[in-house]
């Protein structure tokens, strides 16, 4: 049974700067269920991080939300057992603090900059727990140690009083995950959580996040530019380009039947270590500049399948198969091209 935790409808985030308007997020819609993980893939400037920051209510001036809804459900806001959603875009900043951290938590890419170097891990964890939950400091400390154990920090009860620099990169990311999960949030957003880590450590962290998701029943959003990581961890994948969704489907469909030319080409230009490839097919051109973009497909200048229609109007984000959405006038009909099975 699907229980949507988050429903995003036609979300837009613009930034007004001297040169014009940067349309960083330009009409994004998706639904996320309990215990589901959504992988958001995109290159630099595709709007994936801004989308998530908008959901977290972290957009500051000159950014604004001209349109769209972010509907979020949590039991705390439901009356009489009736399911209710609150629109996060309408929530005033001082009320947002009740949501952020408590119900929606975020993990950032670089664990060194997301921990305060001046405070011990204990200080930072206890602060979070006490702020959001009505517990004593002693109780909060107990919980913090418990969480550190869960994320696999050895001698958690002693090491909790260490400073961030005394931990390795992988351990720091584990601590950040522990802080993120400390209030048992309904939604956890991870922004490139393993990009700064080595492969073997990355595998450990991904495994840990999978286990924790199953344990806590959290809905998760993984933002990444690495399609391999998405293949590893996501149930559903959303491919973004130029502030728009290009394709969205479950993970197997995306990798086996990439229908949008961008997704298709992206998969063909990843070199793989487990299979020999004679040639790579790079996508020509450069990522788009999001300053006052025309109301056309952002991939148009780099697309080899562009038709006259593409140059005239923007395609809708249409459901071509159940649960498989594509925004393209001229989608790739046949499945994955040569080379891969």
């Amino acid at each position: 049974m699907s229980e949507p935790v988050l429903i995003v409808e036609n979300l837009k985030t613009y930034f007004d700067i001297a040169e014009g308007t940067v349309k960083a997020v330009n009409g994004v819609s998706f639904t996320l269920n309990k215990n589901e993980s959504l992988g958001v893939v995109g290159e630099t400037g595709s709007g994936k991080s801004v989308t998530m920051k908008t959901i977290m209510g972290l957009i500051k001036k000159p950014g604004y939300i001209p349109e769209g809804k972010i509907l979020f459900h949590t039991d705390e806001f439901s009356k009489d057992g009736k399911k209710e959603y609150i629109d996060l875009t309408k929530l005033p900043p001082h009320q947002f603090t009740r949501i952020r951290g408590r119900h929606i938590a975020m993990i950032f890419q670089d664990p060194m900059t997301s921990l305060n170097p001046m405070y011990t891990v204990a200080d930072q964890m206890i602060e979070t727990i006490m702020y959001h939950q009505n517990v004593s400091e002693l109780e909060a400390r107990k919980r913090a140690i418990e969480l550190l154990r869960k994320v696999g920090i050895p001698n958690a009860d002693k090491r909790i009083d260490d400073y961030p620099f005394q931990f390795s990169g992988g351990q720091r990311q584990r601590i950040v995950i522990a802080i993120g999960l400390s209030c048992n949030p309904e939604l956890l957003i991870a922004d490139e959580p393993t990009t700064a880590l080595d492969v073997t450590i990355q595998a450990q962290i991904l495994e840990l996040m999978k286990d924790l998701q199953n344990e806590f029943n959290t809905a998760m959003i993984y933002i990444t530019h690495d399609l391999s990581v998405v293949a590893e961890i996501a149930d559903k994948v959303m491919v973004m380009y130029g502030g728009m969704q290009m394709e969205m489907a479950d993970v197997n469909t995306i990798f086996e039947k990439p229908t949008h030319p961008y997704t298709n080409m992206l998969l063909n230009c990843i070199p793989r270590h487990d299979a020999k490839k004679e040639d790579l097919e790079p996508i020509p051109g450069q990522p788009p500049i999001m300053l006052d973009p025309p109301n056309l497909c952002p991939f148009l200048p780099r697309c080899p399948r562009a038709t006259d229609r593409c140059r005239k109007e923007l395609a809708e984000f249409k459901e071509v198969e159940p649960e498989h959405f594509v925004r393209c006038w001229n989608p790739v009909a046949d499945t994955r091209m040569e080379g891969d099975k």
Binding site: S168, G170, Q171, D198, V199, T200, I201, Q202, A203, Q204, L206, E207, D226, L227, S228, V229, V230, A231, E232, V251, N252, F255, L267, I270, R272, H273, D274, D340
Partner: peptide, 26 residues
């Protein structure tokens, strides 16, 4: 361990990698 830890862009190959994950750090 290194090659098994590196993810591959193929969800069918996901399976259970746990046995290959090396513990600890360098």
């Amino acid at each position: 361990a290194l090659l098994n830890a590196a993810p591959v862009p193929d969800p069918r190959k996901r399976r259970d990698r746990k046995q290959f994950i090396i513990k600890g750090q360098v």
